[in-house]
């Protein structure tokens, strides 16, 4: 295989890894928008929260690294569950405190509140964890799959157990969420409430509870993404939710805000754009490309790829 081809394949792969964690964040944006038509700008910070809180748990438990045996099979999934519960809970709390009192206010009010909430969370993270880059220890074992397991000898291509872990967590979560929203009674109630809140209450759906559930699920997914990021990238800081949030938001808009499959699709497209931009145009240009996409989209097709052009598809 030529070096150029390997490089290209590696970038496709990198793009997919970025898309995988962005997708988890984008889902929260799109679900919340679908149900209360709010772009929750504080959503990206839940991702940072997942990063910090899971790191705090790892540290508090004094878990040795790399993870193996019992720690890998039992403790790690438990840390996932706790991180997701806490992130989901925090998101519900944010809604209760900041957005719920404004449910019937003009749309701009909760939007500005969301920006303020984002600043507040970032400031709290800076106080809690300090303003500098934080090292997230390399808990997850990193084994070179192609060389050590498969005996191949590529010149450049590098795929490890950490990549397996990233996809092994994010893909099932995305598929699981889609099935949950498509098939379960609660998922259908979420879609019903997104389509017509008043009609939903007429059939007996407690819309406030459904909205809280939506914030919970969105927060839990963003928290899971933060934990995945920590174990995968091994570094982050208090503002990490801001940029990830902007990219995930762009992904959600690209796919069609309010559309669940669209959010995942948009995330993978953004991930690929970023990876290709980093490699072939230069890292400094990647953001410019991504946000140029956002601007072009908002001008020419605000309903996104999978959103209908007539009315925006919700949840």
């Amino acid at each position: 295989m030529s070096l150029e081809l390997e490089l290209f394949i590696q970038q496709v792969f990198n793009g997919l890894t970025i898309g995988a964690y962005l997708g988890l964040i984008a889902l929260g944006y799109t679900m919340v928008y679908g149900i209360i038509e709010l772009i929750n700008f504080a959503h990206g910070d839940l991702f940072a929260f997942g990063f910090f809180i899971s790191l705090t748990i790892f540290t508090a438990l004094g878990i040795p690294r790399p993870l193996e045996g019992f720690n890998l099979i039992v403790v790690l999934p438990l840390i996932f569950v706790v991180t997701m519960l806490l992130s989901g809970g925090l998101n519900v709390l944010i809604d209760r405190v900041a957005y719920k009192p404004l449910r019937n206010a003009p749309r701009l009010a909760p939007l500005i509140t969301a920006v303020g909430m984002s600043f507040a969370l970032e400031a709290l993270f800076a106080i809690w964890q300090g303003p500098s880059q934080i090292n997230y220890p390399r808990y997850f074992p990193q084994i070179d799959i192609l060389r050590d397991w498969m005996g191949l000898e590529p010149q450049l291509l590098f795929i490890t157990t950490k990549d397996l872990f990233l996809f092994g967590v994010t893909i099932p979560l995305m598929v699981g969420l889609t099935l949950f929203v498509d098939r379960t009674k609660l998922g259908k109630a979420m879609r019903a409430a997104a389509q017509d809140r008043e009609a939903a209450s007429m059939v007996g759906i407690n819309v406030d509870r459904i909205i809280a559930t939506t914030f919970f699920v969105g927060g839990a997914l963003a928290g899971a993404a933060g934990l995945v990021w920590g174990l995968y990238i091994n570094s982050g800081r208090f503002l990490m939710g801001f940029e990830a949030g902007l990219m995930a938001f762009t992904a959600a808009v690209l796919g069609g805000i309010g559309n669940i499959r669209g959010a995942v699709l948009g995330a993978f497209i953004i991930g690929l754009l970023k990876a290709m931009g980093d490699q072939y145009i230069g890292g400094a240009w990647s953001r410019i490309i991504i946000f140029a996409v956002l601007i072009l989209l908002l001008v020419f097709r605000p309903s996104g790829i999978l959103g209908s052009t007539q009315s925006i598809e919700k949840v």
Binding site: K188, D196, V203, G204
Partner: peptide, 22 residues
Amino acid sequence: AHDLVGQGIAQSPEGRRIFPRL
């Protein structure tokens, strides 16, 4: 409203208000 349904009151509202994408 959502609690009244359980008590035995249901309605077919003005303008139908069905869920268009279910």
